[in-house]
Design a protein around this nucleic acid. Structure first.
Lengths: 199, 199
DNA sequence: TGATTGTCATTTGTCAACAATCAAGCAGAA
DNA sequence: TTCTGCTTGATTGTTGACAAATGACAATCA
């Protein structure tokens, strides 16, 4: 899962996980030099990675000053984000019901099993990753995955406040309900379960 | 409008304009070295700019190979994009009607005047920029502009096929209808005009 | 013939040194 | 005291050289 040939991607995914799991709190500044020393590489790939994360909305940059971890979205913004995510993921599910490709169902089942396990454990980073992977699988299934790049920054901004007020097991059950409805071919039920899961 | 202290932003906005105005067609490859020579700078800032544009959805990158201009979104994707834009911009207009700040109306009036002028001329790049500026003003007005970074990549992907099938004067008139409804304080009318303008 | 391997030019990935910029703290004057 | 302007240390911005990966084409072997 973590194998990327180029350093910038490795650095980016490493930092992404640290931010989403709450290890790096909002407003924490990230300096190129110290990150370069920490990873034992030069500043070049670090710069690329920080630029990546900035465009994904996890960091905010000020020219000639540097980047820091982005603040949680305001209530207003978060409300818009919720609607956007629903729109994207609901479109993907609707598209899937046009084909009912079995491959997606298998992958979702696999994800559910891992997710349930991770909820019991204590590795929040792992939970976040599996939760995100679940929704990513759904989005990827539609239209050759063309929605992923649209969806990802929206999803990430929402997950900036993942750790707080979240019942992990409840989240698992909601995933399970969605998948069950898809197995049974009940489109309306799946869509409703998905929409009420995204809040 | 074009003054940015750092080179990467200058390069990025230059290339952005060339792509949106149709000078650079989809699938056109962009090489770091040739761009560096063209702009008379080194590859560093070029890299940063290309990374920027990639994350904005205007370019697509393949590791160790390079970037090329992104293809127009598929019909399915475009449909989703339309809904996302409507959601964001409608939220912004609704928020504005809560305050009815006069500053926005003045800026929109100014933009309309310039836009009308540009539609008569032949500089498509100018038209695109003013069209985008119009919608950006609306989005910026809500919630301290917090929606802009969410909105921009969505908007840009849509504008990848700007040049084709577009009646410029008709677009101007639709802008004018929206602003008129806002002046008159007719929220429902403004929202309907906005939604039907985004297609 | 057809598939495979080797070579080569092109292009991106990475690095370390240097330049430009900014924010903070201090000195001095009103 | 409070404000202005300077100095300074830290941090980002930029550069050119070198390393690694890729794709195309030619040479080789079954």
């Amino acid at each position: 899962m973590k194998l990327a040939s180029n350093l910038q991607e490795q650095v980016a995914s490493h930092l992404r996980r640290r931010i989403l799991s709450g290890q790096l709190l909002p407003d924490t500044p990230l300096r190129e030099q110290s990150l370069a020393e920490e990873f034992g590489i030069s500043r070049g790939p670090i710069r690329d990675a920080l630029l990546h994360l900035t465009k994904e909305g996890l960091l905010v940059a000020k020219p000639n000053v540097g980047v820091k971890v982005a603040a949680e979205p305001s209530g207003f913004k978060r409300n818009v984000i919720v609607h956007l995510r629903r729109e994207i993921e609901a479109s993907a599910v609707t598209a899937w019901f046009g084909t009912r490709d079995a491959g997606l169902l298998r992958r979702l089942d696999d994800n559910l099993a891992l997710y349930r396990e991770a909820c019991g454990g204590s590795d929040l980073g792992q939970v976040v990753e599996l939760d995100m992977a679940f929704h990513r699988l759904i989005v990827e299934a539609a239209d050759q995955g063309s929605l992923v790049d649209l969806w990802l920054p929206i999803m990430l901004r929402m997950f900036l406040r993942y750790s707080r007020h979240r019942d992990l097991m409840e989240s698992y059950r909601e995933h399970a309900v969605i998948v069950r409805a898809m197995h049974a071919g009940r489109e309306w039920e799946a869509l409703e379960a998905l929409k009420s899961h995204i809040v």
